[in-house]
């Protein structure tokens, strides 16, 4: 038998195991989880495939005609059939802009959370594993960080950056800056959660067994303790991505986020807000609904995940 077929056999048994697992069972029994997951997959897929499925490219200045600006959605009387959801104030197709904007929002959310996770895991793991002075120091840092509101820190940093380097450079680096600011501002959430589960895992005998074997701290922390702390990490990640997307939207709404040329969902809502009283409601409302739905399904999935992964619930 070739190694390829062996690998395939292993793969199928893994799939079978997955379909027999508690995880899959509870998923198929939970309508909210199924609906949320489906919506999430559709939205994320649409965002990922934006360059393929979007009717126009909103970043392409040459394709935009200012004469098309503020056209209502195609189903209303003055609508234009070329633009399914209408156009924004600059004449961009709203559907395409939303798809590209969602892409930007999700990228920022994911990257910011990865940064949070990296910082939080390293800090929480060291803090919980080594304990003592290091623990006190790192956790006081976390407390200080938490006593500033994320928004306040983000606004100050972004405003200072914009003022000192000019909006030209800012618009180039906006995405990176947003990732850094949101990523750094929220690490204590992770660090605290991970520290708590490390403290619980550290007392278990498999950790002592690893120490008796003579393994070093790094190996014990990353190979033995960390994999056993994955469930809470997974659970807070879903909520944190949703939070990061909201933070980004809020910052963009305040004019400190993505530039008008590359709008995220928040920036789009903000740019449409100026026209809402002149009757062009769609520029704000449609991206707003998309944002709310995206964040809602992620939070619902997070709730479901927390219930499934709580070992107390499925022991009974």
């Amino acid at each position: 038998m070739s190694s390829n077929t062996l690998a395939q056999a292993a793969e199928t048994t893994k799939m079978q195991k997955f379909f027999k697992s508690n995880f899959w069972y509870s998923f198929t029994r939970d309508k909210v989880a199924i609906v949320s997951f489906t919506i999430f997959v559709i939205l994320a897929g649409a965002a990922l495939l934006a360059p393929v499925i979007a009717p126009t490219n909103p970043y392409d200045m040459a394709a935009i005609d200012i004469m098309d600006s503020e056209l209502p959605p195609s189903w209303s009387e003055e609508g234009d059939e070329r633009f399914l959801l209408g156009t924004d104030d600059q004449g961009r197709d709203l559907l395409s802009t939303i798809l590209y904007g969602m892409r930007t929002s999700l990228t920022i959310g994911l990257c910011a959370v990865m940064l949070q996770m990296f910082l939080g895991v390293v800090i929480g793991l060291s803090s919980g594993y080594f304990g003592g002075r290091m623990d006190s120091f790192l956790m006081r840092m976390a407390d200080i960080q938490l006593s500033f509101s994320t928004m306040m820190v983000a606004i100050i940093v972004l405003a200072v950056f914009q003022a000192s380097f000019g909006s030209e450079l800012y618009s180039k680096l906006a995405m990176l800056m947003l990732i850094l600011v949101i990523g750094i501002a929220e690490w204590p959430q992770y660090a605290r959660t991970i520290r708590a589960s490390v403290l619980a895992e550290k007392k278990k005998e498999y950790v002592e067994a690893a120490r008796v074997m003579g393994f070093g701290s790094g190996r014990i922390m990353f190979r033995h303790i960390l994999p056993n702390c994955l469930s809470p990490i997974l659970v807070i990640s879903t909520v944190q991505i949703a939070n990061a997307i909201i933070s980004e939207a809020a910052l963009s709404f305040l004019g400190l986020g993505m530039p008008v040329s590359q709008p995220s969902l928040g920036a789009l809502i903000s740019s449409g807000f100026e026209y809402i009283f002149s009757g062009s409601w769609w520029i704000t409302v449609i991206p707003g609904i998309v944002l709310v739905v995206l964040v809602l399904v992620m939070n619902l999935l997070g709730d479901w995940l927390r219930d499934v992964m709580n070992p107390k619930l499925y022991k009974g």
Binding site: E205, Y206, A209, V212, M213, P227, N228
Partner: peptide, 29 residues
């Protein structure tokens, strides 16, 4: 000097296969 622990439910790393658990010290040393 090796040790066999009291609680069989917490003395094995739940995220590793049994072969990995036993191979790790051989590999490490």
């Amino acid at each position: 000097i090796q040790m066999v622990f009291q609680n069989p439910y917490s003395s094995l790393n739940a995220r590793m296969t049994v072969a990995d658990i036993i191979a790790e010290p051989i590999h490490f040393h």
